[in-house]
Nucleic acid binder design. Structure first.
Lengths: 93, 93
DNA sequence: ACGCCACACTTGCATTTTGCAAGTGTGGCG
DNA sequence: CGCCACACTTGCAAAATGCAAGTGTGGCGT
């Protein structure tokens, strides 16, 4: 499979890149992502599980039953690709 | 909507970026794309229609009932984003 | 001690997207 | 005139996505 195909297998799902983009601003909690992105809660849960399994992000426990999601090194490496896509989207009028 | 969101609304569908990547090598015919990518024919037809409508590619008629698909300026501008994503995918072991 | 609330999910079901397989139309060529 | 390559379309099954409501857990106020 091509390199692009490999990338899309990990972050090609509907909300994956939007979640990662949000996390580029620093660790976020579940509820924050949900409100900021307007993503359905079951999709958010599923994507977070997959992205964690793929090594893109990690959970870091905060107080009691709250935690935050933070990008790993591999997740941060998506910065360039997301920025490039964002620039392209911005050019589209 | 964010710039990334705008981009994904256009090229976020399953085969869209893979099709565009293939077209970065120059204009291709329907059958070529189908064979090279292994994309289902109805999906290919749908994506090509959408990408044309979005101004990413254009049909150019060849002989009789054959035509080729070529990137427009806007399609070519995806080069950086695709390359960045490809690099990221390649780094994933 | 008890109830209540915030938070992070899960569950059940409708809708949309994707995929597979087979069929359609059109023009050129022998 | 029949046949073939090419570019699709169509019908239906499977998977992903979305909506709404429910679950569990820990802290905090009373």
């Amino acid at each position: 499979m091509s390199d692009l195909g490999a990338a899309l297998d990990v972050v090609g799902a509907r909300w994956a890149l939007r979640i990662v983009e949000r996390l580029l601003d620093g660790p976020q909690r579940y509820g924050d992502l949900q409100r900021d992105l307007g993503v359905p809660t079951n999709m958010l849960a599923t994507r977070l599980r997959e992205l964690e399994a793929a090594g893109v992000l990690s959970r870091l426990p905060l107080r009691h039953n709250t935690r935050a999601y933070a990008l790993t090194e591999r997740g941060l490496a998506l910065h360039d690709a997301i920025e490039a896509l964002g620039r392209w989207g911005a050019e589209g009028t």
